[in-house]
Design a protein around this nucleic acid. Structure first.
Ligand SMILES: [Zn+2]
Ligand SMILES: [Zn+2]
Ligand SMILES: [Zn+2]
Ligand SMILES: [Zn+2]
Lengths: 143, 143
DNA sequence: TTGCGCATGATAATCATTCTCATATATGAT
DNA sequence: ATCATATATGAGAATGATTATCATGCGCAA
């Protein structure tokens, strides 16, 4: 039950929070923008304010429930924190996001931070490229 | 001469552009925010508008003269594109930025992109941590 | 030197995100 | 179940970085 996730995160169980958790769990193509979450909830007939979406996302982030990413393009995307850490590769044409995890890269990062005298706390690794999915705007026949 | 850099980039040689190139070349702690560039030029007695700073930075970026980074904190930082590619590690307390290059990480990225069916175009790798420099706000005795 | 098109600066406009504040509600105690 | 109180919510204003507008200025090829 999502209620428990909220309680154990120290958050009151409220309608908006439950709806947002549900949506984050049931959404394909994780990595949603705040605006997208807002619109989808409105379309689903829910009553919610955009300010609440931002507020709750920030709370979820602080509680470790979601992660905020800053892919290029100015707007942040959020994803439910499920399972282990991973990094991302984003299609510069269609915006499709794939995830990956590479232990050797993670290991090198720790070594680099130590060598430079930093206590590593976090990192961002995002690859950008052109994907090969049919329908991607960047296909060679396009334009 | 910076004039040549501008011409070979297909840009007219103008005062603001020359001043900005100079500043980018002569600035310690590369990785300047647009606002910082603007202020430093004003302080140096130059007459320039903030809009021009943003415009020129965008042109420099398009011409490959500078790189734009989005470290966390909302504002972009720019650095002169000199020499080979590198990635960054940023102190979460004092904002100090160090650069590094790791061939094995670069190599793994290419392999990952290929495996996932992406034509790799670019990437962002930024480590965040606490630095060990004296005077850093995050020193253990602080607070 | 001239003319034209790009460049510039001041300012308004955007865009995403955050803040304000009056109202509504969850939750622990009664 | 009822209350009391701290917290949550929604609408809209406010913010901060960046971009667009537009009248004027200037680089540069002819
Ligand atoms: Zn694609
Ligand atoms: Zn992800
Ligand atoms: Zn750098
Ligand atoms: Zn530091």
């Amino acid at each position: 039950m999502e209620s428990q996730d909220l309680r154990s995160a120290g958050l009151k169980v409220t309608g908006p929070r439950l709806k947002m958790l549900e949506l984050l769990e049931n959404t394909q193509g994780r990595h949603l923008t705040a605006e997208a979450i807002y619109r989808q909830l409105l379309d689903a007939g829910e009553e919610i304010g955009l300010a609440t979406v931002y507020r709750v996302l920030t709370q979820f982030e602080a509680a470790g429930l979601v992660t905020r990413h800053h892919f290029e393009g100015g707007h942040a995307v959020f994803e439910l924190e499920r399972g282990p850490h991973h990094d991302h590769i984003v299609c510069v044409h269609c915006g499709r996001v794939e995830e990956f995890y590479d232990e050797s890269i993670e290991k090198r990062q720790r070594a680099i931070a130590e060598k430079l005298g930093f206590n590593l706390r976090d990192h961002t690794l995002t690859l950008y490229g052109e994907c090969n999915k049919p329908g991607c705007k960047g296909e060679k026949n396009a334009r």
